[in-house]
Design a protein around this nucleic acid. Structure first.
Lengths: 223, 223
DNA sequence: GTGTGCCGTTAGGCTAACCTATCAGAGGAA
DNA sequence: TTCCTCTGATAGGTTAGCCTAACGGCACAC
């Protein structure tokens, strides 16, 4: 038998899960401080919440104090990411919203999609593999396979590749990239790299642009 | 100038607004007790919440203690109903969900639709006038015009009319009506009425059914 | 070794929204 | 008139999630 765990998480819990999932796959990892920054709350709030979620079996603390998701937590987080990215696809493909506005909307949608709605939405959208920004959409069972890619900034002058994803959701940045046509599946060539952290000169669809290093670090291309 | 009131209501507040909106247009009106029943909370919780919402200018208390929405509260409530019913249309028309399952889902959706998403959704759906159960969808400005209708139970034997709406959202009832083909815009004739509160004999698409009085009171037809 | 900072935790409070138990007033029945 | 019932309000308590202020340990500089 066992205890019936209905396991409907609170909205806050779901937001923590997602933030940890995201920070876990950065070189820096997920710490209390970084989570506080990511979620826009004070560090003690994170301490407290992390303790609660640890008790619920969603996460554990690593040797150095980092926050790591348990298998259960990781699956739930991946499903949330799936719902988030499916929502983004829906907002862009069906409602025809601009790609730079959909992240914030999807943040709300992801918490209200039932299993059935999620499944029907995926089917109706043609089971998309990525969100409009090129990020991979996890499977229904929570498996998550990101296409290997390197930052545009790592390309050498003269090299050419194809954009796979933009790993930043800030509307202003996305809007800017959109006006330049720097979308996933776009072919891009690096024509020059200015020294001392200067901009990259890139060519896209015949036009040349100068991109700052920070921006170029957010654009990922096939490696 | 005036104070900028961003006025993003809490989910609870929104649920109270909707419940009051609904109960206000029943003969019994909206009272603390009925609200408690409708919302599934204890009466003191309603007392408390109603006091808070009164302070926010969303509602007032009538002479007999009834709860009445202010103009502001009524507009916000109507917009929520609009979002709820648009969501139901979306779930049925686009996701092809059965009409008896969409109410509960829409209860979650209505709280996360931004003004822009609401507008695009309405347009994409062809600006529907009613939800899948035949209830009118309020305008963007909160005006709400329900088509005049009478309960099926008020028809006399031999009379024929067309179903306009089902004023009940219980999945089991809706499922039952769906299997009989008792959907909005369906032509229906009353062939007999059993005495002493007995069932109505109705004919729909060639078939005859016996409907209890309670069910027949939830089905509204053009009068 | 001894300061100096950085991080995370502890301590103590706050608010929204809920609960149960109890109280008060208004209206109808006897 | 008295009483009983029904309805809503009050009092007091809980929980989740957030806050600020203050504390403690570790690492690194000197």
């Amino acid at each position: 038998m066992g205890v019936v765990t209905v396991n409907k998480r609170s909205q806050s819990t779901e937001e923590y899960l997602e933030a940890i999932f995201k920070l876990e796959r950065t070189p820096a990892g997920a710490t209390v401080g970084r989570l506080a920054g990511e979620l826009g709350v004070a560090p003690p709030s994170v301490s407290e919440m992390v303790a609660r979620m640890g008790g619920d079996g969603l996460l554990a603390r690593g040797a150095a104090g980092e926050v790591v998701l348990t298998a259960e937590g990781a699956v739930e987080a991946a499903r949330l990411v799936r719902r988030h990215r499916l929502s983004e696809r829906f907002l862009v493909d069906y409602l025809e919203m601009p790609w730079d506005e959909v992240h914030d909307e999807a943040c709300k949608f992801e918490h209200v999609l039932s299993v059935e709605v999620e499944a029907r939405l995926a089917e109706q959208l043609g089971n998309p593999r990525t969100c409009p920004h090129g990020q991979a959409i996890p499977d229904e069972d929570g498996t998550f396979e990101e296409e290997p890619a390197i930052p545009l900034a790592d390309l050498k002058p003269g090299e050419r590749s194809t954009i796979t994803r933009i790993s930043d959701e800030r509307p202003d940045l996305l809007h800017y990239l959109g006006t330049l046509g720097l979308l996933p599946e776009t072919s891009i060539a690096v024509e020059g790299v200015a020294p001392f952290g200067g901009p990259l000169l890139v060519r896209v669809a015949g036009a040349q642009y100068a991109l700052g290093r920070e921006v170029a670090g957010k654009i990922f291309v096939r490696g």
